[in-house]
Amino acid sequence: MIISSPMVIAVVALGAIVLLSIFFHFVPFFLWLSAKVSGVKISLIQLFLMRIRNVPPGIIVPSLIEAHKAGLRTVTRDNLEAHYMTGGHVQRVVHALVSASKANIDLSFEKATAIDLAGRDVFEAVQTSVNPKVIDTPPVAAVAKNGIQLIAKARVTVRANIHQLVGGAGEDTILARVGEGIVSSIGSAETHEQVLENPDSISKLVLSKGLDAGTAYEILSIDIADIDVGKNIGATLQMDQANADKNIAQAKAEERRAMAVATEQEMKAKAQQARAEVIQAEAEVPKALAQALREGNMGFMDYYKLENLKGDTAMRDTIAKLDPTAILGGKKEGK
């Protein structure tokens, strides 16, 4: 089989392209040339070894060039490779170092890499140090001593504290402390009118407490943006207390009524039981009299006297129940 020359040329060209692609992938010649032109000393062998170590030269070399142009002689290839292999953001660290150098901020390579590995954006921190940012607090509700609620919003101007970024608290802690200070300041005011007249007193009091201690930021100013009057919490609490006292009194009264009803029912039950016992005893009297007559313990005359006594007693009860006016009226008519 005879292969035509154009096909051979195409195969050879394709092979050459593949070989060149592999070569330039493992030996980034153009990156080496760019570094050489920029004054960065790095060899092709070092670039090849970067590929073997799975370190992208496309990140390390431009970062070295940037650091060299900015005059950062402490930034070396080994440092950048080590930081990349530990999971850091090489380009972000170099950007931060260059910005800090231009702004005369004392930031070493070790400090920058530590901040980056701590999970913070070191470049943004440097920018915040140069250009402070404003944090708006959510509405904070507090009650003055006269019971009136005030709802305040504040704007906190902060600047990043480079030396406390590692281990320092974040924005949430700043907002929580400022909110706590606003509540304390409003709560110590005698009336809500005092706060409305001098809202800057809140800012001065909160700012004097050193709320940025242990945080990654330095508080520059706290400005009260808005204050609204809320509910009369004192009156609401008094009404709730009055309703609670009323409910307690009603419950106690109901308890006493229930006890009285229970006592009355108990007395009625005892009275009924006593009446039943009396009726039962009265029912036994004739039997006892008959027994006494049969056994001779009572004579007939004694029984007769007893019946007369009962008749006299019944007559007196009847006379006692009559109306005296009716009796006197009947006597007059008889006359």
Rank of each mutant, 00 (worst) to 15 (best):
83 H>R: 05
284 E>K: 13
233 I>F: 07
332 K>P: 02
135 I>H: 03
332 K>S: 15
267 M>W: 10
41 K>A: 09
130 V>H: 04
267 M>P: 06
154 A>Y: 00
77 R>I: 12
257 R>M: 12
142 A>I: 06
309 L>P: 04
93 V>N: 00
136 D>L: 13
322 L>W: 07
300 F>L: 15
85 M>Y: 08
128 T>C: 11
122 V>C: 05
252 K>C: 08
195 V>D: 00
330 G>Q: 12
35 A>Q: 04
41 K>V: 11
170 G>Y: 02
107 L>Y: 02
250 Q>Y: 12
128 T>I: 13
225 A>V: 10
325 T>M: 10
170 G>R: 04
138 P>V: 05
69 K>S: 10
314 A>S: 07
259 M>P: 00
187 G>E: 02
240 D>C: 08
40 V>R: 06
243 N>K: 14
74 T>K: 10
193 E>N: 11
206 V>L: 01
46 Q>D: 14
160 A>G: 06
26 F>H: 12
244 A>P: 02
98 V>M: 05
220 L>I: 10
335 K>S: 11
250 Q>V: 15
65 I>F: 01
39 G>V: 03
231 K>M: 13
121 D>R: 02
214 G>M: 00
207 L>Q: 11
85 M>T: 14
214 G>N: 06
296 G>V: 06
166 V>M: 05
179 G>A: 04
61 V>G: 05
77 R>Y: 02
256 R>Y: 14
90 V>M: 02
159 R>G: 04
190 E>H: 13
316 R>A: 11
28 P>L: 00
165 L>V: 14
318 T>M: 09
151 I>D: 07
34 S>N: 11
31 L>D: 08
33 L>D: 02
50 M>F: 10
48 F>C: 11
119 G>S: 08
292 A>T: 06
167 G>P: 02
55 V>G: 07
78 D>F: 03
257 R>P: 07
25 H>C: 08
56 P>I: 06
258 A>G: 03
222 I>G: 00
322 L>G: 11
179 G>R: 02
2 I>A: 09
242 A>H: 08
61 V>A: 04
188 S>N: 05
275 R>N: 10
198 N>T: 08
68 H>N: 14
252 K>S: 12
194 Q>Y: 12
219 I>C: 00
330 G>D: 14
185 S>I: 02
332 K>T: 13
301 M>G: 11
285 V>M: 07
82 A>K: 05
